[in-house]
Simulated assay, not measured.
Amino acid sequence: MANNANELSGIVQEAIAEALGLDTEEVVPDATLLGDLDAESIDLLDILFRIERTSGVKIKMADLTEIIQGGIPDEEFATEDDVITATGLAQLKQVLPQIDTDALAGKLVADEVLTLFTVQNLTDLVAERASVAAAAA
């Protein structure tokens, strides 16, 4: 199992590049997966599978949603109109530190949250999972 941060970063970068048919140089840390790199949901599954196969770190799509929402109940995370609440934005800022919560306040809808997810966010998640697995071993 990979545990070195640079090694994990390379694994994530390569998995994304291979899944999306990109050069690894195009897969920069601040690129958003669904926006900048044009990934679709099915591509995310492929990326997660490639990361698991190479690193031994298993992450499911449901894990992404769980991490993003941080255990906050749906009704507290977003309004009935699916607009992310102040509570939801505060949680998002913790897991996606690059976002501008002021610019997104009252505008961000739940379906768009994953579009903010970057290569670095995924790398951090993989590194966190790898360290938890290593600690448990």
Rank of each mutant, 00 (worst) to 15 (best):
A86I: 12
E128M: 12
L104D: 05
A86W: 08
K93Y: 00
G56A: 07
V126A: 02
S9N: 13
S41K: 12
E66G: 11
E112I: 01
L108G: 05
T123W: 01
T79P: 02
E66F: 15
L116D: 05
A86K: 14
A15T: 09
E52R: 13
E52A: 12
Q91P: 02
D46L: 06
A86C: 09
Q98K: 15
T32M: 04
A86V: 13
T87L: 07
E80I: 08
A86T: 14
L64D: 03
I59N: 06
N121L: 13
I11G: 00
T101W: 02
E76T: 01
Q94I: 01
I51L: 08
D46F: 07
E14M: 15
D63G: 05
T24G: 10
E112Y: 09
L104A: 06
M61Y: 13
L89I: 10
E7H: 00
G21M: 07
V126R: 00
D38M: 10
G35H: 12
L22H: 15
L125K: 01
G21D: 08
T87G: 02
I67W: 10
V12Q: 03
L44A: 06
Q94E: 04
I51P: 05
G88H: 01
E128R: 14
V113M: 07
L89H: 12
L122Y: 04
D23A: 13
